[in-house]
Design a protein around this nucleic acid. Structure first.
Ligand SMILES: [Zn+2]
Ligand SMILES: [Zn+2]
Lengths: 339, 339
DNA sequence: CAGGCATGCCTG
DNA sequence: CAGGCATGCCTG
């Protein structure tokens, strides 16, 4: 289920009523130009709506919104990012990079300097461009959830939790950006909130320089916030109408000890035998893989019990999925890192 | 500096301007009856003011309030407490007791059933009595700070942090007791806030039964809250005018793994050689122990630098004090526990 | 900044 | 509920 940056990608769009509806969106990775239109059918609508704060089909379900796209997509401007250790005198840029896992590990509040490649062909117009930075959960269990700031950190900027007192509205700009985990020093930055996906992001206008300094003001371990979930920082190149013109992302971990955590991570790679690979949930077999309902040749139970059973079944499947997901994530890290 | 439940106790009252003014308050521990009046000159005024929410000499300095008293004091009613494992069917009372350290370790939200001894002599009047439960920091570094709930937990009960939006006022009763770490199921409990000390506490009327069930809804480890500071639960017997008639206390740790933590604690006692005793701050010697100012035979510096030096000196002394304090706390635990 | 501990939480 | 890991923070 984990999004693999391979050639074919499938996305699942979770619908309002909670059922999982599969909408496979297949596309090639390399031959991107021809896919711009296709691509804009799924995530780009969401991206576009971020520009105009649409209030349409808002629900108050904060934990169930649309799947963000994460695959690399150079697009017409050959959009790519590049990390550079800050030689800037004023800022100490302490972060670690695990080439093995393609992951940046950084302390809270420290600067990550990112250089973006945006190649304007001579014959292309000179439209206004923007780079959006959006933090998302990378494991399939949580891709749907927006990454929100934890209460402890949010309250530091917004004592009375006013920025999000009104459902669907974001007043973060008036409250020291309380809800934004990702910050930038870019003077013209626009801090966005998409009421549909309930996601915060920051948009930097591309004006000559394409080096931006980002900081992150929650940790992946923040209790009740990111809550130890893995994250990915997704950069998208957009024009002024919010059309997505390029995408690029990097795994990001905000933590207290980047060095230690990277070393531990990579050591785990070198001693893979130690961590016994889980075999998943062996009891689950194909015969149970009908549409998720219980078999109707069961004894007819009172409704409450049926519901309990279904829920329990869902839990079991979720668990099995989770196990598989973890394995895939591990393997994915090894593949993309080791190549 | 740690409050030792010995015969002589000294308190330091911290004044508004931040300077430490020593006010030694010496009193005997055992011969308590004659000391009731004396005692009421220091902490009991605060106790009394809790009854009527005085707004007098309020400052918004939340972290610097008066020293709570913690010594045992049976008083005229031979006030004592007694812990009993709940045999109550409905509640699982999971807590651990370290006899060695006289400490209760309990999980968040679990019930601590406390029985109080309140002996009314025949000839004594039948005044109304109350038992107050107040959680305080036990190390001398933090005795002055009220124990407040952490933001994460407080916000669960009070989404918009309204209970303490107005400085000096407490609306916790309207917001699910958001600010109260100590709760009780006692129906007639009165949840108090003393604007002078900025402390929350809970008062239970003594009506026949003197068994109360307490729960604790923050952990000692709560970030930005108790923040890994050690605490003591102080019970005081009071009459309806707030006069203190008895006191009794117990070290309390609210944590996720009471068993493990107790075992670790006690193991440390059995293998005391392993943890090297710190030798304090060896550079600090008596010659520097003047009134805390720098020697005036220093070169005359610009004021800014003098201030810096003084601050640094204060920091150093604080650190040394801290080291000593820890040693004393350790020794204290061993003494009181092992006797 | 590294070593080590404290401590929450996950997993069986 | 125990064992073990993840991870913050303290200490030198
Ligand atoms: Zn946070
Ligand atoms: Zn808490």
């Amino acid at each position: 289920m984990t999004m693999i940056a391979g050639d074919l990608v499938e996305t699942i769009i979770k619908t309002e009523d909670g059922s999982d509806e599969e909408v496979p969106v297949k596309r090639k990775r390399r031959r991107v130009h021809q896919n711009v239109n296709n691509a804009s059918t799924s995530s780009d609508e969401a991206d576009a709506s971020q520009m105009q704060l649409t209030m349409s089909d808002m629900t108050t379900n904060f934990h169930d919104s649309r799947l963000p796209m994460m695959e690399d997509f150079p697009g017409p401007y050959d959009f790519r990012h590049e990390l550079s250790k800050t030689d800037h005198p004023s800022v100490r840029a302490t972060w670690e990079y695990s080439a093995l896992y393609r992951q940046v590990l950084i302390k809270l509040g420290r600067v990550l300097l990112v250089h973006f490649n945006v190649t304007r062909d001579k014959d292309a117009g000179s439209e206004d461009l923007y780079i959006r930075a959006l933090l998302v959960y990378s494991s399939s269990d949580h891709v749907y959830s927006p990454v929100n700031r934890c209460a402890v950190h949010a309250i530091e900027d917004d004592r009375l939790s006013r920025a999000h007192a009104e459902p669907g509205r974001c007043f973060c700009p008036q409250y020291k950006l309380a809800g934004h985990v990702v910050r930038t020093n870019s003077a013209n930055a626009i801090y966005c909130f998409d009421p549909r996906s309930q996601r915060h992001s920051v948009l930097c206008p591309v004006q000559g320089r394409t080096d931006f300094m980002y900081t992150f003001v929650c940790k992946n371990s923040c209790p009740k916030g990111l809550n130890r979930r893995q994250t990915k920082l997704v950069f998208t190149l957009e024009n002024s109408s919010g059309q997505m013109l390029g995408r690029s992302s990097i795994d990001l971990k905000i933590c207290s000890c980047p060095r230690r955590d990277r070393e531990k991570l990579e050591k785990a790679y070198k001693n893979p035998l130690e961590n016994g690979v889980p075999t998943g949930s062996p009891e689950r077999s194909e015969e149970e893989d009908n549409d998720g309902g219980s078999n109707d040749n069961d004894v007819i139970d009172i409704p409450g019990e049926v519901i309990m059973k279904l829920r329990s079944e869902i839990r079991n499947i979720r668990q099995a999925l989770h196990v598989v997901d973890r394995r895939v994530t591990n393997i994915h890290g090894l593949i993309t890192g080791a190549q």
